[in-house]
């Protein structure tokens, strides 16, 4: 009975973590190129329960059976499904159609993003909203203002028709090896070598969040109810124990 305290406890803990992930998705329904997270939970290994004091029985006969002791969080799975493209008409907005990432140079090293709401720095370089340099095939891109066009392959042509450079668009063999860092940036933790992506660049558009509000709200309700259920189990075990402590001895 004491075990069920902890089993119900782990259930509650996991639901709290799920709640955190679901609420992060739900507050990012309007975030550019946000990728929805799902918390995957696993169960603890089954334990074999065995009677310890049963004289005369064999080892096999003393076995009661397996017992599960609850759940734990396993990992976060990020869905890299394409978000819908939204036309903005701003020449510094870019969306990627297909699997791929823009490459950004930050003080912490190279990072990857699908959020293409860029700006131009005072020196004329293409930068993110935080001022990190957007990388082309040959390093930083100097575009000198917003009067340029970008084709599907990412080739940047300025107002006079000269080629300025090409946006570097990469992808990875294992996208689950990417880690979110906030500000729409991903770090490569275990995704393998970056390779050229076939994603198409769309100028004047942004990628929307890929959060499916209906299923997230459903999940929100499920989480709240599952939490409640685990709490009920816990209080029931508690009241049984209370009976054991206070009433059984009274006979």
């Amino acid at each position: 009975m004491i075990r069920s305290f902890y089993t119900a406890g782990t259930g509650m803990l996991v639901q709290r973590d799920r709640m955190d992930v679901v609420s992060s998705n739900l507050t990012n329904v309007e975030t550019t190129a946000y990728k929805a997270d799902t918390l995957v939970h696993g169960r603890f290994r089954d334990m074999l329960i065995q009677r310890t004091n049963d004289p005369g029985s064999t080892r096999e006969e003393r076995r009661v059976g397996p017992l599960n002791t609850g759940v734990h969080i396993d990992r976060v799975y990020t869905s890299f499904a394409q978000g819908s493209l939204e036309q903005t008409g701003r020449s510094l907005d870019f969306a990627l159609d297909g699997e791929g990432f823009f490459v950004v140079n930050t003080p912490d090293g190279v990072r990857y993003t699908r959020d293409g709401s860029f700006s131009v720095s005072a020196n004329g370089y293409l930068v993110t909203a935080e001022g990190h340099f957007v990388q082309g095939e040959n390093g930083n891109l100097r575009v000198n203002g917003d009067g340029f066009t970008v084709d599907e392959a990412g080739t940047i042509t300025d107002a006079e028709g000269r080629t300025v450079g090409t946006l570097r668009i990469v992808t990875f063999d294992d996208l689950n090896g990417l880690r979110k860092e906030g500000n729409g940036l991903f770090a490569n933790a275990a995704a393998g070598q970056a390779r050229q992506s076939q994603a198409k660049v769309v100028q004047g558009a942004l990628e929307g969040s890929n959060v499916d509000v209906a299923s997230e709200i459903t999940r929100l309700l499920t989480v709240a109810r599952a939490y409640q259920t685990n709490q009920r189990v816990l209080t029931m075990v508690d009241s049984s124990l209370q009976k054991t402590v206070n009433e059984v001895g009274r006979v």
Partner: peptide, 21 residues
């Protein structure tokens, strides 16, 4: 550690863009 266990903390207003068209 290898497993992805990153948990977000919501959304922030990063910037306001003015449409100068």
């Amino acid at each position: 550690s290898d497993a992805n266990l990153m948990q977000g903390s919501g959304a922030v207003l990063a910037s306001t863009y003015r449409d100068f068209s």
